[in-house]
Write a protein that binds this DNA or RNA. Structure first.
Length: 269
DNA sequence: CCATGAACCTGGTCGC
DNA sequence: TGCGACCAGGTTCATG
């Protein structure tokens, strides 16, 4: 499900339920969900502590409990939402946390999603690259850093230690915007196209956040947001359809094991 | 440094 | 209707 705009949307939607509240218990149904801590750690460090803030970094949702951070990564199918009750008919609730008057539920069909506990942001800041919607992601930054790498642009855009938050949908959309072929080598892309790429990344992410993200597969969305950005997609999932710029047929291939959509006419190597 | 393939999981869809 | 193959918005690890 989630790339930066979807994670941002989920973060904002759970924030109002969590802030100034306290977790009173943790129930784990799928053990691997707790990546680097145990229920005992939860009890000693998070339980009954005041939640000060909830925010996003890359594709992580961060819950700030003053002396500890609880981090959530949704991976492919994770859904995080607040609810007044646990729906026993849901088959894939990996874990849930109890608040005073409601629950924070983590539902995850494919079980790839993870919860982490950190002392502070050092580890994630070390691991993650530039935030594409902050000023750090400047024109100078992209011109300088793309030149330093000799990598296929699509996998480079997906590398969270380079730029964080971009995933498969927005990588394809941003490359289409900039008319760059997904296999172009980063160091050989023209200055003009790199600037266009930066603009495209910011544009697709911001516009998607405005629409609440992109929803492609939505089995049950009882408590979960449904994003409307799918209406704005130009190449992702559009194989066989005509390019909105040049009318050529959009092609789907595989790059770095990921489905990759592009216009063979607009996006030359 | 960089690319590739497999692994982690479940379920939906497509072709026969 | 049934069944196998393939696909999925992500990340990590091992191997050339």
């Amino acid at each position: 499900m989630p790339e930066l705009p979807e994670v941002e949307t989920v973060t904002q939607s759970v924030k109002k339920h969590l802030i100034n509240n306290r977790f009173t218990s943790l129930k784990v149904n799928w053990g691997k969900t707790l990546h680097n801590f145990t229920v005992a750690d939860f009890n000693s460090r998070i339980k009954n502590k005041l939640i000060r803030d909830v925010y996003r970094r890359g594709k992580y949702i961060l819950i700030d409990l003053n002396k500890s951070l609880l981090a959530v990564h949704l991976r492919m199918t994770g859904k995080l939402y607040a609810s007044n009750a646990i729906d026993k008919s849901k088959k894939h609730i990996s874990l849930y946390l109890k608040l005073n008057d409601k629950y924070l539920i983590f539902e995850d069909t494919r079980k790839f999603g993870r919860f982490y506990m950190f002392d502070n942001m050092d580890y994630l800041n070390e691991k993650l690259g530039v935030e594409p919607l902050l000023d750090d992601f400047s024109t100078d930054w992209i011109l300088y850093n793309m030149k330093k790498k000799n990598r296929q642009i699509k996998p480079l855009l997906l590398d969270q230690s380079f730029i964080c938050g971009i995933g498969n949908i927005y990588a394809d959309e941003a490359l289409w915007h900039a008319k760059i072929h997904p296999l172009s080598i980063s160091s050989r892309i023209s200055r003009k196209k790199l600037l266009k790429l930066r603009e495209g990344i910011i544009k697709v992410l911001q516009e998607s956040i405005k629409k609440g993200g992109t929803t492609i597969r939505d089995y049950t969305y009882d408590f979960v947001y449904v994003g409307n950005y799918s209406l704005n997609l130009n190449v992702f999932g559009k194989q066989g359809e005509s390019c909105s710029r040049c009318q050529s047929s959009i092609v789907k291939t595989n790059v770095a094991q990921r489905g990759t959509h592009y216009c063979p006419k607009c996006q030359k190597k």
